[in-house]
């Protein structure tokens, strides 16, 4: 029942509310984490380095941003939306938890396919599997 009424829409207003400093912060965090993952891999080997391929790099920045945007929206409407803003960011985190099924499927696909298939093919298939599994888990959750 829930699934049939849940429509996925594109909302550009959230992007417009994001300042260039916030975009820059995400770029910096993303770039820095990628460099650190490379350094960890080099220092401690691929087994430890691999753990950090699924490090929640951008998560604190995103959760803070979502909470802030929601709070600003509620304040503009003249209400104290602190609880609501935390709920919204919490729902986003729950979505990320569902997305982890896709992340796991991505890793498993790369692990199994990479030794025997060309890299571009493997990464393309793994991305497709990530998206498919993540959306499927989300849909199942919405339908239940």
């Amino acid at each position: 029942m829930g699934e049939s009424v849940t429509k996925i829409t594109v909302d550009l207003s959230a992007v417009r509310r994001t300042t260039w400093q916030q975009f820059a912060a995400r770029f910096l965090v993303g770039g820095t984490i990628t460099v650190l993952v490379g350094v960890v891999g080099k220092e401690f080997g691929p087994e430890i380095g691999g753990l950090f391929l699924a490090f929640p790099a951008i998560f604190p920045a995103s959760a803070t941003l979502i909470e802030k945007h929601e709070l600003q929206k509620k304040q503009r409407a003249g209400v104290n939306g602190q609880k609501r803003s935390r709920d919204v960011a919490g729902v986003d985190a729950a979505g990320a938890a569902m997305g982890c099924a896709g992340l796991l499927a991505f890793a498993f696909t790369v692990y199994k396919m990479l030794p025997r298939h060309p890299a571009v093919e493997v990464l393309s298939v793994a991305m497709l599997i990530w998206m498919t599994v993540a959306v499927l888990v989300w849909r199942i959750h919405k339908a239940s």
């Binding site: 998560f59 997305g99 890793a107």
Partner: peptide, 14 residues
Amino acid sequence: KSFAGLFGAAPSVA
């Protein structure tokens, strides 16, 4: 937001 959250666990760094 629950759908948008899926991208929070995207394999971007990977």
